[in-house]
Amino acid sequence: MNTTAQSNDLKTWQCIVCGFIYDEEQGLPDEGIAAGTRWADIPADWACPDCGVAKADFDMVEITV
């Protein structure tokens, strides 16, 4: 069987206001965001846990490790 490699390029994002890091691979299980949740799939009303800036209002900066 041909096993196509899943695109596992889970990304890391950083809040441009306070530097909080969201790692797609880790998610934020304590806040109800499952490991592996892509940035795009996080609810629009989510806010940065460290500084409260709304998701809609900032650009997470993609960090390539």
Binding site: A47, D50, C51, G52, V53, A54
Partner: peptide, 8 residues
């Protein structure tokens, strides 16, 4: 004097 109170 922090960010989060400003957001709320």
């Amino acid at each position: 004097p922090y960010v989060m109170p400003i957001m709320h």
